[in-house]
Structures are given as structure tokens and as C-alpha cells.
Write a protein that binds this DNA or RNA. Sequence first.
DNA 1: CCTGAAACCTGTCTGC
DNA 2: TGCAGACAGGTTTCAG
Length: 281
Amino acid sequence: MPELPEVETIVRALRDGGRGGPPIIDWVIEGARLLWPRTLAQPGQNEFLTQITRQRVGSVGRRGKFILLNLDTQTLLMHLRMSGDLRVEKSYSDDHKILLPQLHDRLLISFTTEYRLAFNDTRKFGRVWLVNDPSEILGGLGPEPLDDQFTPKQLYERLQKSKRQIKPLLLDQTVIAGLGNIYTDESLNLACIHPLQISNTLAYTQVEILWAAIRRVLKDGIARNGASIDWVYRGGSYQNQFRVYQRTGEPCLVCGTPVEKLIVGQRSTHYCPMCQPLIVS
DNA sequence: CCTGAAACCTGTCTGC
DNA sequence: TGCAGACAGGTTTCAG
């Protein structure tokens, strides 16, 4: 499911309330139930359950597609991968019975507030880490695209360093953090760049346009609470703004040419062959 | 260094 | 109706 805008939407809901649940800031963890052991990447199950108990949620953050719960002495990192989602809900029914986990719940973290955080993940690709130093997991990530620190020059230098196709490069989280298949296709279309264009052939002007396109698309995605596709993600309406993603055969909104699809790096890739020509030099 | 394929999983949709 | 196959918002690992 989630790329940067969907993860940001979830993070804001944990912080401020929303998506059906109250904020979890300042809540104290009472315990945890691991329903699918492989969801826990680090540490072992016993250490995890012991260490997380009685820690307070000081703040909630995001880095790329990672969700960060900053606890008293440690950080809980969560990555939703393809089909993960979080719910904040009551642990008990009105007659004080513990509510059963929902289908595909993989981890339940209960708070002393009688609420719990459910990590739900149909495809079981999602992972959580409880670590002392988050940089051990997040250290390799590229820049945050919406940060003030992130400049066109910075993007240009990274693209110049590589001769890879631009689409797989933008999906590489060590190059730039947070883009996934949807927002990469949308960014490249907005910037009029072919997904197979070799990154170091892009002129600085084009990279400036791409930089602006990436930020525009991500900000619009956040403004609409992300995109809901198929059965996976709750809320979000950015799917109604798609310019090319999943619009194969439909007319380009700019020139009317049918949107084409090809496979790049094993990922479906949607683009307008007229607006996004491959420039061979 | 780069690309492509496979693996990790379950569910949905399409076409025969 | 049933079933095989393709495909899905991500990442890692391995072969060439």
C-alpha cells in the first residue's frame, strides 16, 4: 500500500488523531502480542515483549516510508511494505471482553488507556524493529524529498553520479526516500521524463522540473490523505488525481495520446509516449 | 556498477 | 462454475 503520502497520513493520525482513532502520544505501553512472528525483524520475541512494556510514546515521526514511535529509551520502527496498515482501537468491548484480533492482524500493542495499536498486514511483508539507535536501520536512506534541505542541486548531483534508468533510481530508497511505484510514475509524467531515461543524461533544467514535480505530487498526495486502491488502504482520494498510474490506454490528460504501460525493474510503469519522449544522446 | 529474476505472502480479477 | 495465471502501493538477495 503505502508510499510517503500514505505513511505521512497514518503518522499524522497517530499524532493528532484521525482515521478512526485517537492520538497515541504520551500513552504507556502495557504489553504486546505477536501474532505472526516474522513481522518482528529485531530483536527476538522475548526481548521485544519485555523491553517494549511500560515504555511511553514520546512522539511519532516518519522517515521515508518508515513510521517511528519514539519511546522512553528506544525507537519502534515500522515498515508497512505492500499491504500493511495501522489501526488504533479499543482493546475491550462494552462488556469488558478482549476484542479478538482482526483478520491479518500481525502485532497488537496494548496501552494502559484500554486502547491498542494493531499492525495489520495481509501479505506479511511488513516489518517492525525495536532498536536503541534508529540510524542503524535508517542510516542508508536518501534525503527526505519534502525537507527544506532537499534541493534541486542535491538531486542533480545524485542523478549525475549514476547511469541507471531514472525510474528504478527514483525507487531506490538510498537515492531519495519515500517514493514508490505510484508517485514515481506520476512525478516522471509531470516532469515529462521517460521512465527509461538514463539519469545522468538529464540536463539541470530537467532535474529542477523533476524536483518540483516530485514535491508537488507528494504534497498533493498528502493533501488528499494518500491514495486508496483496491481493498488495501483506508481513506485517501489521491487515486482520483492519477495522471498515468493505472490509466493504460486512457487518453493523456495533456495531449490525448493513450497512456502506455511497460515493465521496468519488474514494476508496472505508466507513461505518455508523447509527453515523455526517450531522449537518446 | 548495472539489470533482471526470484523470493517473501495473500487476495482479487481476468480469461478460457 | 471452476480454475490457472497474472497482478498488486516494497525490499532483499543473488546470478550474470
